[in-house]
Simulated scan of single mutants.
Amino acid sequence: MGIEHERISFKTSNKNAHIEAFHSTLEEECLSRNEFQTYAEVYQAVTEYIGFYNEIRIHSGINYLSPREFHRAYNQNSMNGLVIKA
Rank of each mutant, 00 (worst) to 15 (best):
F52P: 02
Q37H: 10
F52S: 08
A86C: 12
Y64G: 01
R68H: 13
P67R: 10
Y39H: 12
H18C: 06
I56S: 12
M79H: 05
N75F: 04
H71M: 12
E69P: 05
I56T: 14
R68C: 13
Y43P: 01
F52G: 02
V42W: 01
C30S: 14
F70E: 05
T47K: 15
R68L: 12
A45F: 04
R72K: 12
Q76S: 14
V42N: 00
E35Y: 03
N54Y: 12
L82A: 01
L31M: 08
A86R: 05
K15I: 05
A86Y: 12
A21Q: 13
S32P: 00
R57N: 07
T38S: 14
A40D: 11
F36N: 02
E27H: 08
E35P: 01
S78A: 15
H23D: 09
N54W: 10
F36I: 00
V46F: 06
T38P: 09
E55R: 14
N77F: 08
F70C: 03
Y43Q: 08
E69Q: 14
A17Y: 11
N54R: 10
S66K: 03
Y49T: 03
E20R: 09
F52W: 14
L82N: 01
L65Y: 02
Q76A: 13
E48T: 04
K85R: 11
H71I: 09
I50G: 01
Y39T: 00
N77I: 01
S32K: 07
S66F: 05
N77T: 00
K85W: 05
H71Q: 15
Y53C: 02
H71G: 08
H18D: 11
C30D: 10
R57K: 14
Q76D: 12
N54I: 05
P67N: 14
A45Q: 02
H23Q: 12
A17C: 08
K15V: 01
N77D: 08
R57T: 05
V83L: 09
N54M: 09
S24I: 10
T38F: 06
I19Q: 13
Q76V: 01
S66Y: 07
E55T: 15
L65A: 03
S32Y: 07
S60K: 06
S32G: 00
L82P: 00
E41F: 02
G81W: 08
I56W: 11
E28T: 10
I50F: 04
G51W: 08
A17R: 14
E29L: 10
N77P: 02
Q76I: 00
N63T: 00
K85E: 03
Y53E: 08
N80W: 11
V46I: 12
I50M: 04
E48R: 07
R57V: 05
S78C: 13
F52H: 15
E41W: 04
L65I: 00
Y64H: 12
Q44M: 03
E35F: 07
G61A: 11
H71T: 13
S78T: 13
G81I: 07
I50K: 03
C30A: 09
Y64I: 00
H18M: 12
